[in-house]
């Protein structure tokens, strides 16, 4: 690393020239544009209902009027005190496997697609890549009937109905999220893995290492940062998902935070006091997770993850 110090200093000097006042100004304008809307929402969520509806949040500065009533209503109103906590646990139970499965499976698949050679490999990769665009909405009905009715081919039952009840419905959600998350994960990890130095893997092969061993001992350590950043993405996606949850995790026993909040936001339009507070409750966890794990995220990308 030490021999990189000088170029970095050089690079710094190179950029200095770029950082003219207008550049700083551009950066400040972008930063403001990107944060003000969220800030306005946050501020509004602490204002009394009447004021949210009649005056802009910026008037808060001239006549501050602070209340946590909106949060009380969203968190504890409408009999949700127990259920919101329950929904939180549901979100957790849904999210953990829904992140683990697709990323592990994608890593295995990406290994095969980049370091094991077989006929039609590239077409398979392109095929999986193209599946990214199959709209989730169109996959809901077939997948649901797969669970509820099994698979019949010409009267012969290939796979019986799963008939999952109660908390076992979580299995459906994991299955759905894994299937839907795989194409993008395979695509990104393949990009990453195919950039790994071939010589290392070659020499391991010469030493007689098996594919399993190469994956475990050489590839896995090298792609850990990429896995971490992908995990954060998948986490954000699953945690924020509403559509999959509505279909596969129906019922208060399994439905996650997003579904509960969507119900609470119920009547839309005018009910800003609920919407603002509700939106913030739903935002807080992913933002916290992102902020704490940001380090790994950036590290993953820095490790050369996005070389195309």
């Amino acid at each position: 690393m030490s021999n990189r110090v000088e170029p970095v200093v050089l690079a710094k000097r190179a950029r200095k020239r770029f950082s003219r006042p207008w550049a700083s100004l551009t950066a400040i304008v972008i930063a403001l544009l990107w944060t003000t809307p969220t800030f306005g929402l946050l501020l509004s969520s602490f204002r009394p209902e009447e004021e949210i509806k009649t005056t802009g949040w910026w008037t808060f500065f001239s006549q501050p009027n602070f209340t946590i009533e909106n949060y009380n209503e969203v968190l504890y109103g409408s009999g949700s005190s127990g259920r919101l906590a329950e929904a939180f646990i549901n979100s957790l139970v849904i999210t953990i496997p829904s992140v683990l499965f697709p990323i592990a499976f994608a890593a295995l698949a990406a290994y095969a697609l980049s370091w094991v050679e077989f006929k039609g490999r590239d077409w398979l990769f392109v095929g999986i890549f193209a599946l990214q665009v199959v709209p989730l909405q169109m996959a809901l009905v077939p997948l649901l009937s797969f669970f509820s009715q099994g698979v019949d081919v010409g009267g012969f039952t290939l796979m019986p109905a799963w008939d999952l009840e109660g908390e076992w419905k979580f299995v459906q959600v994991w299955f759905a999220h894994t299937a839907f998350g795989l194409p993008l994960s395979v695509f990104l990890l393949h990009n990453f893995m195919s950039e790994l130095p071939g010589s290392v893997i070659e020499s391991a092969r010469v030493d007689g290492a098996s594919h399993g061993a190469i994956f475990r001992k050489i590839v896995l350590p090298l792609i850990t940062p990429a896995l971490a950043s992908l995990a954060i993405f998948q986490f954000l996606w699953v945690w924020n998902d509403l559509l999959v949850a509505l279909v596969f995790a129906s019922g208060s026993e399994t439905s996650p935070l997003t579904a509960r909040l969507a119900d609470m936001a119920g009547s839309r339009g005018g009910e800003w006091q609920r919407l603002t507070a509700g939106a913030f409750v739903s935002i807080i966890i992913p933002v916290a997770v992102f902020l704490t794990l940001q380090r790994y995220f950036v590290r993953g990308l820095l490790a050369g993850g996005v070389k195309g």
Partner: peptide, 8 residues
Amino acid sequence: EVRVTGGD
């Protein structure tokens, strides 16, 4: 619609 056509 999703549930009825999906058999659930």
